[in-house]
Design a protein around this nucleic acid. Structure first.
Lengths: 345, 345
DNA sequence: GCTTAAATTGCAATCGATTACAATCTAATG
DNA sequence: CATTAGATTGTAATCGATTGCAATTTAAGC
């Protein structure tokens, strides 16, 4: 097995120096036309390929970017990652994937690990609402040369860029839509509101109620994980109330689906008896046969692309002052059967 | 901004040599207990972290593994990747993601690119049925030091490991199930049979027919892409036949969904008039309200884990002879409403 | 106290590419 | 023909960690 050819091999063959070969290959400093031609030809003929590891060591740039998400096997996160990969690969970057499974200590570990392999930047959706208490994270913060970009689940920290959607607007629009449908008693399946995204959806919900003269009723807000079973449980609880709600706005499509299943099994009709709105525009919400689910699209592909662009801007910034961007994408309410009552007449 | 501390910094501080520090840190050659203790303490105190890039250059091992898939935003592939990441991270590897979008030239490029950054191995699901004509791929083949593991969409190439499911069995079981339901005229939505997986599902389908005395009818096999629209088109075509089929076995859940939509809109009932079976156990097949979809589970998480294990075996193999493993997982037919006729009585 | 083996530690090369600085060569000018 | 600016190329250090071999120190044995 022959080893890879290096610039030294080329240099030896041509009676030159590695330095000259390097310069010729990089089209860089003044090199005579003949030498350059000769070097390029020989390089081609010897199948030369630049050793990226050597380059990385010398330059300190690995051309790797780390992406940290709670999990990759959800449509939302995999779509974001798709966007990131598509945007960064053409610029020469490779994308390293890390999952946290929503566990703080794993998040810590992965941050450390990525910093340790000298990624040129980290794009992440946080799993730990108290990220600032995180040792690895703080080290990253101080070390300002490695750009950090939050997407979706961000934390509002000075000097850190982020790409999110306007979750407040998403929550507001969803709720307003339910009000427009004539609903008066709208429940909300929230999630851990230590995370900005869930807090903002909740706040949007509250504001929409307030703007439309509906009293906020805390008993109608239920903290729910993003899964079908939890959605069912929450719906069951709501249906068992003395005065059940006439609509549910869920901050998760999965929980919305669970709610729909529970409601239907109770013999109630959607949207006639209860309207339901989810959040994320997961593919299955469109695939439902009877009751396609109204939801809020977060444009994950776009979010990934944008996060990547922000990273590129930061990493190519040569100024002393750090660039910080906080991009907020606009969500879109997608109205489907689960919340659209027949117009009369 | 202070730079990272290196073994030289530690050495200087202790009046030692980098070599000694290195050995002390690696617990390796004989080093006096005192020196080791001193070095370890100082390293801790100076926040020393090994520079992985330097290590990578010296050792030739990057501890990065490349994963190439057609796209990441499908439940199947993202689940495989999840499995790979979970298996490899504890062993110190990072996972680099590449998408091909089923385009040969992109696949080529990404293979080259990964080899170029000296990944320690590549796990891939091929996009190009003629991969052997691929320059970058052949270079990889000759260069036997970098393990290559196919998963799912493999090519039968000597010396290359693979992890797949038994697609023949998957196709056979699905078809047999339909026959058991009393179906006599079973159509098959296939896909490009230059890929082994689709060819094997097709062959399993044919064999099940043959074993049960049903004549194979080529006009009932339709080549279909894995998406809803193509499934609809194929179903339309089948429904328009003089003698429409009484069952459809689709090698894709998405195409199966499209078929179901088209069939229902034609006023026909599932499974009474036409039974439908898909392939992959995509989440939505379980979420259908009226007609949950019978499908074949490919255990993607397990597939990813296994592929990673095969890689680990290959990479830790010190023998001269290359290990080659071809693991075949067993698929599982999951029977749901779309194909289960009411038992009489 | 001297010899010798064993235990530690140091020296220097290596992995490949880049680059400041020095050296050499070319050709033009007076 | 000598001088000199400008064009090329070479020298050597650098990025950090590892490791074979040499050198030194320590301890043991007589």
């Amino acid at each position: 097995m022959k080893k890879k050819t290096t610039i030294y091999d080329i240099a030896t063959k041509l009676g030159l120096t590695a330095a000259t070969v390097s310069r010729a290959l990089n089209n860089n400093t003044k090199i005579s036309v003949n030498t350059r031609k000769l070097v390029l030809e020989t390089a081609l003929e010897m199948n030369y390929e630049q050793n990226k590891l050597a380059l990385a060591l010398k330059s300190g740039k690995s051309y790797n970017v780390g992406v940290i998400v709670p999990r990759i096997d959800s449509n939302f996160f995999s779509s974001v990652i798709r966007g990131i990969e598509e945007e960064l690969y053409p610029k020469g970057y490779h994308v390293i994937i890390c999952q946290t499974h929503n566990q703080e200590h794993i998040e810590n570990e992965k941050i450390n690990s990525l910093v340790n392999v000298q990624v040129d930047g980290i794009l992440m959706s946080i799993s730990n609402a108290n990220l600032e208490e995180n040792k690895g994270f703080n080290k990253l913060l101080k070390n300002k040369k490695t750009p950090l970009v939050f997407f979706d689940r961000k934390k509002d920290i000075k000097g850190i860029s982020s790409v999110t959607i306007d979750d407040f607007k998403g929550g507001y629009d969803a709720t307003k839509h339910l009000l427009d449908q004539g609903c008066k008693r709208i429940a909300h399946l929230s999630n851990d509101r230590n995370f900005e995204i869930f807090r903002n959806r909740y706040l949007g919900y509250k504001q929409a109620l307030a703007d439309n003269g509906i009293d906020f009723d805390e008993s109608l807000v239920i903290e729910t994980q993003s899964n079908v079973l939890d959605g069912r449980r929450a719906a069951r609880h709501l249906l068992d109330m003395k005065t059940p709600p006439d609509a549910i706005f869920s901050s998760s499509d999965f929980a919305a689906l669970g709610a729909i299943q529970e409601i239907k099994e109770s013999g109630l009709n959607i949207p006639e008896d209860i309207c339901v709105v989810g959040f994320s525009n997961e593919p299955f919400t469109r695939f439902m046969e009877l009751t396609t689910i109204t939801t809020v699209d977060q444009f994950p592909l776009e979010m990934g692309r944008t996060a990547a662009q922000v990273f590129l801007e930061e990493v190519s910034n040569t100024e002393d002052t750090k660039i910080t961007k906080n991009v907020v994408l606009t969500p879109q309410l997608i109205i489907r059967k689960s919340s659209l009552k027949q117009k009369e007449g």
